[in-house]
Design a protein around this nucleic acid. Structure first.
Lengths: 144, 144
DNA sequence: TTTTTATTGAGACGGCTTATCAATTTCAAA
DNA sequence: TTTGAAATTGATAAGCCGTCTCAATAAAAA
């Protein structure tokens, strides 16, 4: 039976091959866990995987998540004092509305904005691979 | 003669009054310096003000910039490992096109996108204070 | 299998930001 | 203007997050 994450595993292996890197048990384990999330911090993943592999080090998780960023599978986003690693392959890339008062995060998608982004990019000779859009403001509760 | 930053100084004083805080020489000095910038880090401001007041402490700068955030004059943005304090009252916000191959950065502005952002925000009950839009891709030269 | 090379885990380390605390400054009340 | 309670400051210690170091280990090539 084929893995649920065969496609992403392929992307990872291709990246590893191109850079003389190795496919390890840890990288496989972390990728599997990562792909089940929309976004996660290294610390969260550390605790989540502690049961499956109590000896998996935090440094390895950081290194691996950064590797995923280089392979185009993840994208780092700095929020508060921590780094969130977003799952890029998650269908329907979504953007964020972030309340600057209470920290609440609402995810949204907007095709019109994405179309305009493409327009801006092509006008400047760029081909978009990915993007990041964050709207900061006050949610309805905090405005009062 | 009236100060160039009378309006913002008023906002600050009102906030101080409401929270039983005091108007100090340091807060005035830091606000004046801050309002001349579009965005700045605490460290940058520390060096910038070192000449005017060699004894001004870094902790005071952090405390004061955070105070400005609470007063609505500034907004913290985590970029890389540092915190950028954005001058909210500064107009002419621009976004970025970033080449993932050569690192080239092109700035742009797009009113249509901004209008759609407002739409998304209000649909979710948010009032936007600021935003961040970054498009990552390949520039015309790197695509070949 | 042997050899080469990358990876791992554990903890040390470093940068950025906040907490601590005695001395000082502000500001309201006398 | 003087007084006194309360907030602020500056210096530095402490804390947090993420990266670096390095000997031991695992993966891939020969």
């Amino acid at each position: 039976m084929m893995s649920k994450h065969a496609k992403e595993m392929g992307v990872l292996k291709e990246h590893l091959g191109k850079h003389q890197l190795k496919f390890t048990r840890q990288r496989e384990l972390i990728l599997d866990a990562f792909l089940k999330q929309e976004h996660i911090t290294a610390e969260e993943m550390y605790h989540q995987l502690a049961r499956k592999d109590p000896h998996l080090g935090l440094a390895t998780i950081y290194r691996t998540l950064n590797l995923f960023c280089e392979a185009g599978l993840a994208q780092a986003r700095h929020f508060g004092t921590q780094t969130q690693y977003d799952n890029v392959s998650h269908k329907g890339h979504h953007d964020h509305l972030i309340c600057t008062s209470c920290g609440k995060i609402v995810e949204f998608e907007n095709c019109d904005i994405e179309r305009l982004q493409e327009e801006v990019a092509s006008r400047n000779g760029f081909t978009i691979q990915t993007h990041r859009l964050e709207l900061y403001g006050l949610c309805s509760r905090c405005r009062h």
